[in-house]
């Protein structure tokens, strides 16, 4: 169904490219194979991060090194305070590393300025949050349109693109609804549409099902799985839920800021 929509509207060159590669991606649905066969889209090299609270320095991440392959669905798990959300923020360019470097598609994002990071995020990363983080005074359409306002696309092109992604998440009939008029699952689908609308290579999701009932969570996870399989997206998801993590190609466990055997943890 999504393939049909995309071939009809053709708004995203990269999505189409990904769609053409779809068969290959679907064959590589195991983390180990992906790591070995596909190029790395994200590489973390000796990444450390700490926070300062008063005079006390609290280490959050220590010497983290691992890679994520293009088209991989990776789950980050660990107890509260283990540093998984911090790690996700570092990969998304929301936060900066203290030590080490993060390469995304070969670019060392830790060297970018705040303004440079903002521009980079707007085109390279799609963000999905636990509580959706939609702007309440904007309709579903306008929320999805938000990231496109930074791209310089014409109003007509933006409209086409937003309508396409909203139809991909089955919300064409709700595009004029405000977040408060949508269910949790629908809001999260709007958030996913917003994350996808600029056609970023990477989607980062922080507990995307944490605020949803089981049925909605299954729907969202299934949809995220499709984004990987059908559109070749790379998804990095933080979750507490082992069932949610089962949808990933690979699960990485963090504990007290240290990675537990990254390459051996596979679904």
């Amino acid at each position: 169904m999504y393939s049909g929509l995309l071939t009809r509207t053709l708004p995203f060159s990269l999505l189409i490219e990904a769609l053409n590669d779809c068969g290959d991606v679907m064959k590589n649905n195991h983390g180990a194979d992906l790591e070995e066969e596909r190029p790395h889209i994200v590489e973390l090299i000796s990444v450390s991060k700490s926070y300062q609270r008063g005079s006390q320095i609290i280490p959050v991440l220590e010497e983290i090194t691992f890679s994520i392959a293009e088209g991989e669905f990776l789950a980050l798990m660990g107890p509260s305070g283990s540093g998984k959300s911090t790690l996700l923020n570092l990969i998304a360019g929301i936060d900066s590393v203290d030590k080490g470097s993060i390469l995304v598609k070969g670019l060392d994002i830790s060297s970018l300025s705040e303004s440079g990071l903002a521009s980079w995020r707007s085109t390279n990363v799609g963000l999905i949050f636990q509580f959706y983080n939609l702007i309440p005074v904007l309709t579903a359409f306008e929320n999805v349109e938000l990231p496109l306002l930074l791209t310089g696309l014409s109003g007509r092109r933006r409209k086409e693109q937003v309508e396409t992604v909203l139809s991909l998440v089955n919300l064409s009939d709700r595009m004029d609804h405000y977040p408060s008029q949508l269910s949790g699952g629908q809001q999260q689908r709007v958030a996913i549409a917003r994350a996808m609308v600029t056609d970023p290579a990477i989607l980062v999701a922080d507990e995307p099902t944490g605020d949803l009932d089981r049925a909605s969570a299954v729907e969202i996870l299934s949809f995220m799985g499709r984004l990987v399989k059908e559109f070749g997206k790379t998804i990095i998801m933080v979750t507490h839920d082992p069932k949610a993590a089962e949808n990933a190609h690979r699960i990485i466990h963090l504990e007290k800021g240290v990675l537990l055997n990254p390459s051996q943890q596979k679904v």
């Binding site: 707007s122 938000l146 990231p147």
Partner: peptide
């Protein structure tokens, strides 16, 4: 604050 943080996360300056 969370909305402004979201907008900044999305790339707004």
């Amino acid at each position: 604050i969370a909305e402004y943080a979201t907008m900044k996360a999305l790339g707004f300056k």
